[in-house]
């Protein structure tokens, strides 16, 4: 599974990068400052599943294709 730390990337660059990695690997884990609910909601509509947890410092979101 590909792990991507998107912290430091400008906001508009994140969804395309995550989508690209999802298409390549089918499953990714992203590390991010705040839970990316808009992206998660839109990915859900495209048939992806996800779970997310906050470790006290950062969010870790796993996304995979059903």
């Amino acid at each position: 599974m590909e792990i991507i730390d998107v912290r430091g990337l400008p906001h508009p660059e994140r969804p395309p990068l995550i989508m690209q990695k999802l298409k390549e690997h089918g499953e990714v884990e992203i590390i991010v400052e705040v839970e990316p609910r808009p992206l998660m909601s839109m990915l859900k509509q495209q048939g992806y599943s996800f779970d997310s947890k906050y470790d006290g410092e950062k969010w870790i979101v796993r996304i995979w294709k059903d």
Binding site: P12, E13, P16, M19, Q20, M42
Partner: peptide, 26 residues
């Protein structure tokens, strides 16, 4: 500046990513 480009990109380009050249949200 967040909502319009984000929805548009997801609706129009996310499925085509990796298949053809698509613009980024920015």
């Amino acid at each position: 500046y967040h909502i319009i480009p984000m929805i548009t990109w997801m609706e129009k380009y996310s499925e085509r990513l990796g298949i053809e050249d698509v613009p980024m949200i920015g």
